[in-house]
Design a binder for these strands. Structure first.
Lengths: 315, 315
DNA sequence: CTTAAATATGTTACCGATAACATCAGAGAT
DNA sequence: ATCTCTGATGTTATCGGTAACATATTTAAG
């Protein structure tokens, strides 16, 4: 490995000048800078992050804390990790997966936390190191998420455009922020069109949504679209409609919200919001690293939703 | 953070003595050792891995190189990463995910490579740092894998014990070592029982196996069990039998080999070999770290297969 | 009872970077 | 022409460890 000293010798300067070229280039004359750059190129110099870390007493470790149970069959966290790790590796940081339990074991430079609930806010706010939450929240903590409200708003809008005349919202029975946002996206669309909102909430299990549709079939008129808060619920609704002999998408529409692998084996595939978790994870990592470097909040990062067309809305 | 010097002061010794207590305890008298241990406990001392790494010019990075395309819907690699990362984190190493393309970017202390093919052997053997292959091979490279041969051997044995009289092997059309091993496990069982081996090979897609069963239904006698090289193929066989009206497990048996999430939604579930990828990944990490520390091969690690009973063999 | 060898502990230098301070040269002021 | 002052560059100390060498203390041998 070539070091600062090697470069310094080659460029005929002191190692401090080389260090400055890297960290404070404005404090070095262009002439010397060129010499140093040249030497760095010729020697293929890459700074030793370990030595740097020793000086700034940093750990180069970012902890990823997943506060909900991991369903390893879902690629969700795999993608999130992949995305975060991609950015971190680029900056020679490493990702450490921790649970609430072993959260405090070992030092680190910052945190990514996902699956946060209200009860977690208190201890998270007390953390001394930069934090970024994966998933929206209303407690003033910086986060990365899809624009949930815009997502259901757009899907509801699309459903109306396709001629469905009644919009029923099937939501998740939870107090989490993303659910409020998804509901309000639906509500806004419905209000703008002067329609009557119809909301139902269930735990996020397909069979509950399926049962609901099945049980209330007589009250469900033709030409209704179901705006669901998750793909799981949407798949349930889809099954319920099919079991009652309803036609999708001719008679009934269904939309979901990405987050579940099962959609890949559903038929027809749900029209839903496509979230690129990898990309979001990657951005999440960048945001956190910026926060660490600058020592100040970089704000939240909200991704605009993109509709993924399945076969559950008329085309 | 407390340092060596803090501990040294508290114990009234030089920092070198403290360092020795950690790395060469036999070179320090018991008396001093007790003092030092006491001080370390009182100060909750944890060695700074970064400083250590600077001294031994190590990076504390292990690269995980996945040579096949990642199917992010499969929890396989998620589990592998989780397993490796678990061990590495314990030893304050970090895991860096690389592809063949960016393999050489950045230094590291060792490699875990998976999805290796024959053409990869050459460059892998040239690597200067310790390597461990995830997945068996016959090129003398240390690896971690399930005992593939024992797996099919046991499944074939079980099928015979359950009274199936004919065993058809449905394998993967590939030259990879694990496939040879799975075939030979089947063959050995068949030879021991003086039966006639029947082997067929397909690409690892369920519909190919399904088509095969469907097309050859007239040649498939009642009381046959299919020993398949993968769950994917087993699911295909299962579907083929069902489409032809065959009864599983009464008339026909099917066994797979773990590796596919789809089995979780198959019905009935395939009787297969259960591989704990997390555990194997974890062992893989330990093996590699030992290799790095000792600077010599730790040999391969072969996990004995465990049968996971589904509903595709008579009980 | 010396003296050499073995053992236990301390001192120094170093890993590769950076901050803080020291030095030096040239620009501008008097 | 001399004296600041400023900006560019070099020197030293430091981060937290470890190896190599130096020194002090025992132990064993003759």
């Amino acid at each position: 490995m070539t070091t600062l000293v090697d470069v310094a010798k080659k460029a005929n300067v002191s190692k401090m000048t080389v260090s400055r070229v890297i960290n404070h280039p404005d404090k070095v004359t262009d002439e010397l800078k060129q010499l140093v750059y040249q030497a760095m190129r010729e020697l293929d110099y890459h700074p030793n992050m370990i030595a740097k870390a020793l000086v700034d007493k940093s750990t180069r470790i970012i902890k990823l804390c997943i506060l909900e149970d991991i369903d390893t069959t879902e690629p969700y966290y795999m993608n999130l990790m992949l995305g975060i790790a991609k950015t971190l590796d680029l900056h020679q940081y490493s990702l450490q997966l921790v649970t609430r339990k072993n959260f405090d074991i070992g030092n680190c430079d910052g945190y990514v936390i996902t699956g946060m609930r209200e009860q977690d806010v208190e201890w998270i706010k007390k953390l001394k190191k930069p934090v970024i939450i994966f998933g929206e929240n209303r407690y003033g903590l910086d986060y990365v998420d899809t624009n949930n409200k815009a997502g259901t708003y757009l899907l509801a809008q699309l459903a109306l455009k396709k001629g469905y005349e009644r919009l029923i919202y099937v939501g998740i029975d939870s107090k989490e922020s993303f659910e409020y946002s998804r509901e309000s996206g639906y509500l806004q669309q419905v209000q703008e069109k002067r329609m009557v909102p119809e909301l139902h909430r269930f735990e996020n299990h397909s069979h509950l949504a399926e049962q609901f549709v099945y049980d209330n079939w007589n009250k469900i008129t033709q030409n209704t679209a179901f705006i669901c808060a998750s793909d799981r619920l949407a798949i349930g609704v889809e099954r319920g409609i099919v079991r009652r002999g309803g036609k999708i998408p001719e008679g009934f529409g269904v939309t979901g919200f990405d987050g579940v692998f099962l959609n890949q084996v559903a038929s027809p595939k749900i029209t839903t919001i496509k979230q690129s978790i990898i990309e979001m994870g990657s951005a999440c990592g960048e945001n956190l690293l910026d926060k660490i470097d600058s020592n100040q909040s970089q704000g939240s990062l909200i991704f605009e939703p993109k509709i993924s067309l399945g076969g559950t809305l008329r085309s």
